[in-house]
Write a protein that binds this DNA or RNA. Structure first.
Lengths: 210, 210
DNA sequence: CGGATAATGTGAAAAAAGTAACGAAATGCT
DNA sequence: AGCATTTCGTTACTTTTTTCACATTATCCG
């Protein structure tokens, strides 16, 4: 199953939560299409690939669809995640509110400089040395890398040694990982650069968007 | 020109900087391919689309290629960017080091609660009311949205009113924007969710990766 | 109850993206 | 210098992704 399809499913799910909170009890493929910016056909095809079905005239029931999407995406179960790096970005992630409603919880952060503390009420920042053992003992499957570029590969290696299966990597390098390990990269500078290209260049050099 | 191609160009550029710092003076398509995880054909095709040429046997000169990529991507010129929202994420972005080397500078942040201050040496956090005027006066073209979901659309509207042409949006909603405005979305929860799907589901339900 | 309608589900067509293959040219070696 | 080798650049092919189109079916209304 293609990654893009799964991303769209997550987006549908998000949109559905908004529809739900607006009191919608059913939605049509074109509502969802508008909400996430695709065609209605795309929505129906995505759903049909996962056996998500609606009614020929009544569209899809919001609550049922949400339940099924949560099951498919694994968001019906809680997931514990750790962060490596408690700098600016790592700290922001620790405090980020957006994970909760996806049933994702950051349970610990690790940093070489663990003086960053174990402040009351917040997630503890532990010494990096303890990460591997923590991962193993708590059966952590997903780790976030928010350390400087040069340290990222080493952090990934330690995570994998501890048994982590998926990595969200904020360092702008391609991590070398074992077979079967899932890596998603978020490269903030690249995102900005990409925007800059599309707003600057089309007028400059005749190359249009897309 | 497809967005994916441009993203790859940025990645090549990143890899090239690393090659350069390792003392490489020329690279081959398969070096770059390995570095960013594509096929050598892809590299050559991407380059040929932009008239980037190498030598039939000597590969590509690192410095020349870098210069050309910087020109294509617009990173040879400095770009000023603003951030809306000085919460956890916004603050982390303000302090983030990774933008500098792409010639991107965050010149101001805006927040309804501007008590977050104008600390010496750091980027000033100004009241949100002043954002539109600031954008206009300083000819800002790119804005980052790091505010809560509910405020994001309004922020986008104000940005556009000020003349902003590109938005990097961290709010997990689809922004409604005018024709020609470029939006890139970064959805942190979605990235994690996506990882979780691929590490959990393949064993659970028989649906394999890709 | 039956026709009109509105929306789904799907299979085929089209478009886009990626890969492979190969001719051409530059380099190095003898 | 000439031959062998390496790597590019491009064209043709394959695969993937998206869109289109339409048969199907549930609902509504007279």
């Amino acid at each position: 199953m293609s990654k893009h399809t799964i991303i769209r499913l997550s987006r549908y799910k998000n949109a559905l939560y908004r529809f739900e909170s607006l009191g919608f009890v059913k939605v049509f493929s074109d509502n969802l299409a508008d909400a996430i910016g695709v065609t209605p056909s795309q929505v129906r095809k995505d759903f049909s690939m996962f056996g998500l079905s609606g009614n020929k005239r009544g569209g899809y029931k919001v609550d049922e669809l949400l339940a099924k999407l949560n099951e498919i995406l694994g968001t019906n179960k809680a997931h514990n995640v750790i962060v490596a790096g408690a700098g600016n970005l790592g700290s922001a992630l620790i405090k980020y509110k957006g994970f909760e409603k996806e049933n994702i919880k950051i349970t610990a952060a690790f940093d070489i400089d663990h003086s960053k503390g174990e402040r009351a009420g917040e997630i503890p920042v532990k010494p990096f040395d303890e990460m591997q053992e923590y991962v193993r003992q708590n059966d952590i499957r997903v780790g976030i890398i928010a350390v400087p570029d040069m340290a990222a590969q080493h952090v990934a290696d330690v995570m994998m040694a501890g048994g982590i299966k998926g990595i969200l990597n904020f360092a702008p390098i391609r991590l070398r990982v074992d077979e079967g390990i899932v890596v998603n990269n978020v490269n903030l500078a690249l995102e900005l650069e990409n925007i800059i290209y599309f707003i600057c260049v089309p007028m400059g050099s005749g190359k249009g968007i897309k």
